[in-house]
């Protein structure tokens, strides 16, 4: 990444990112009736040079170390913060872009700006230059990581490996009757195929086959596995389980034929389309099933 690209991305970000994303939420505040003596302790113990003055979540003013020093020089001993604070405070809304804050900090020479929520007019945080820097760096880092993953595509692997025939095999375990985890094999396979830069149409067909096969294993058996073999020009998907088996294979391929339980149907599955979908997506499908032993399904896709 060149310096110039970084620079433009940062510029984009200060327009894209909102104050609310980077501001400091937990803000030290004082009340209007807080005495200037107490203020000294608040500033010292929190190591801050100023703080918003708040009453019932509303911002009443802001008081800084400068106000404090002026009071030390000539103020009467029993003085409240309300008497010394700046009332006309420049604020920003949490939904404004960062660029707004940058220009306001520049214009007024302030170190921080209180952040107000637009709807309820409540003080929700404070934003400083440091917050903006940190927020931008964090966002850039995320972008960089995503780019790294993007760059690490395994698509060139077939050219790099030296063999007369190369095949990559991925296996996913499927837990039976677990509807929460169901589909995780197929979705992970699809991400893998995306990284291999398999043609989108072939990738979608392979993902649908794997997903339908995975759902069948989840719905009807106590578990099994899905294997995908990727070779140049060809994807083979094998699903196997040690479940109850299919008594009439031909019938199972009939659209709408299903032996699924009601709870499965209520979740939108088991409508008797799974095997038909698999057959439709594959160039070739074979199904071997023995009642009481299990089922093996093999589907091939020509890329």
């Amino acid at each position: 990444m060149s310096g110039k690209v970084q620079f433009t991305r940062t510029q984009e970000l200060i327009y894209e990112m909102k104050v609310g994303e980077v501001m400091t939420h937990s803000v030290v505040t004082v009340k209007p009736q807080t005495s200037m003596n107490e203020l000294r302790e608040v500033l010292r113990s929190n190591r801050i040079s100023g703080t918003p003055v708040v009453s019932n979540d509303r911002l009443m003013g802001i008081i800084s170390i400068e106000d404090f020093i002026k009071w030390l020089a000539n103020g009467p001993p029993k003085t409240t913060v309300a008497e010394r604070m700046t009332e006309a405070v420049v604020t920003v809304y949490d939904d404004e872009p960062l660029v707004q804050v940058v220009s306001m900090l520049d214009r007024h020479g302030f170190g921080r700006l209180p952040v107000i929520q637009r709807k309820h007019k409540k003080l929700v945080g404070v934003i400083t230059r440091g917050d903006i820097m940190e927020g931008l760096l964090h966002k850039l880092e995320i972008g960089y990581q995503q780019e790294e993953i993007h760059r690490y595509r395994a698509s060139h692997i077939f050219e790099d490996l030296i063999a007369d025939r190369t095949a990559l095999v991925f296996q996913y375990r499927v837990v039976g009757k677990d509807f929460q985890k169901a589909g995780s094999g197929a979705t992970r396979l699809k991400k893998t195929l995306t990284r291999l830069e398999i043609h989108p149409r072939a990738r979608r067909r392979a993902a649908i086959i794997a997903y339908e096969a995975e759902m069948n294993i989840v719905i009807y058996t106590n578990g099994g596995n899905i294997m995908a073999k990727v070779e140049p020009g060809l994807i083979t998907i094998k699903a196997q389980d040690n479940g109850p088996g299919i008594a009439d294979v031909e019938l199972a391929f009939t659209p709408g034929y299903s032996t699924a339980a009601d709870w499965v149907r209520e979740l939108g599955f088991g409508a008797g389309m799974g095997l038909c979908n698999i057959k439709e997506c594959a160039d070739e499908t074979t199904l071997d099933s023995v009642v009481g032993k299990g089922t093996r399904l093999e589907a091939t896709i020509i890329i």
Partner: peptide, 17 residues
Amino acid sequence: LTGLTHPQVINTAEIAE
């Protein structure tokens, strides 16, 4: 558009793009 709200809808959506 669906009336089904189970998390499997998201898996299905992801698979079917």
